[in-house]
Design a protein around this nucleic acid. Structure first.
Lengths: 220, 220
DNA sequence: AGTCATCATTGACACCTTGTCAAAGTTAAC
DNA sequence: GTTAACTTTGACAAGGTGTCAATGATGACT
């Protein structure tokens, strides 16, 4: 018999066993690496109920496992953001909605999330990984600029970068206990509206009230 | 004879040899760790013209060597900032002057500088290390708030954190080639003034002109 | 139900890095 | 010049990464 055609070995035609192993490994990696960024491959393998060599069968090197874990986290975050109506309502509302969704999705893994902004070695891949979330945000920023809701003297790309940076900073402040979770949200909101040059204050998303600036916005 | 008094072994009464070694090691560590954050202790020792064990004689562990290198960098940066007249002139001018000085001082070691915002493990020490530079900035921010030059609805501590985050972001953009060095400066300047809620635009520091917003502020 | 490619496991290996120890050199302080 | 401080040399254990080959188990396909 002739050898069967190349069969590029996609994710679909792999054995169910392999898919399961890969999922366990990835999940364990996300959990462990979030607790301890320098967790060993052996620890991850054990946590996944698998041998170290099995991990290497799926991921050629530790760094690629880390990259895969970050990719998976990004993927989930992007999905959550995309589901948060990026294109409806005022741009400022949409932006805050996206950031909220992102924090809900990635908030479970703060240490891992923080690795996204400053990963160990492969600096080139980092930017690549931000692309999908940056694209979502950039769409909203451009829409706001086009509508005149946001100022357009600053390039949209920079505004997106700055937004992400401020969001990470606010998250870190909350994580470090210097701000409560609610303070961090309010502070980030106000800061972003200033930075983006929003001319009007967006309505609060729910029935929680329509005040522009809650009292606790001025803490510390 | 009785043993001499404790003699706490300060930096002054150590042998000249030891001081020299320590300096070489630290300098080599800064240089190498900037190029490759995971440089081995052996590589650093060799670059310093010293044996690996000598390094361990000065720094009990690799992490402490890294911490010492970061401390030294911070120290130089703080000195440069303190020399940039934090307390004279409009607060906005002073702030930009400090950031400029900081970038000139730390700009030689971008990778190392970036480690300050997201260091590998000892997360607690990180905040501690930011303190001196944060204090300098906070003084300026508070002065601006007291003068009415800056808005004071946001806590000064957060504004400082946000300022540092934006400065790092702008630096990273320049480093990644997405912005020229000059664009990064202008963009950062505009963004900070927005964020801080400065009511009037500070005069440009030199004879370069008094326009509020240079033409290239709108790139991309 | 049986075949067989695919995947997982086991055990062993070389290599590098960290951190430690003790003993023998040097250097500079006094 | 003596002596304490510092450096060097060599060797060691422990732990992590990445690789290989052989054996075992599973599930896809007919």
């Amino acid at each position: 018999m002739m050898t069967p055609p190349p069969a590029p070995r996609t994710a679909r035609n792999r054995r169910a066993d392999a898919r399961r192993s890969r999922a366990s490994i990835l999940q364990a990696a996300i959990r462990l690496l979030n607790e301890r960024p320098d967790a060993s491959v052996e620890a991850i393998a054990t946590a996944a109920g698998v041998t170290r060599q099995t991990v290497y069968a799926h991921f050629p090197a530790r760094e690629q496992l880390l990259a895969a874990a970050l990719d998976r986290l990004t993927e989930q975050t992007v999905a959550a953001m995309a589901a948060a109506d990026p294109d409806s309502g005022p741009a400022a509302d949409a932006l805050l909605r996206l950031l909220d969704a992102a924090e809900r999705a990635a908030g479970e893994y703060p240490a891992l999330t923080r690795m996204l902004s400053t990963l160990p070695a492969s600096a080139q891949q980092d930017a690549e990984r931000h692309v999908p979330v940056a694209e979502l945000l950039e769409r909203v920023v451009r829409r706001g600029q086009a509508d005149g809701e946001f100022d357009d003297r600053l390039p949209a790309g920079w505004l997106v970068t700055a937004t992400i940076a401020l969001a990470h900073a606010a998250d870190a402040e909350a994580e470090a206990g210097r701000l409560t979770s609610q303070e961090a949200r309010d502070t980030l909101r106000t800061s972003l509206l200033r930075l983006l040059g929003a001319t009007r204050v967006p309505r609060a998303a729910g029935a929680e009230g329509t005040r522009a600036d809650p009292g606790e916005g001025r803490t510390g």
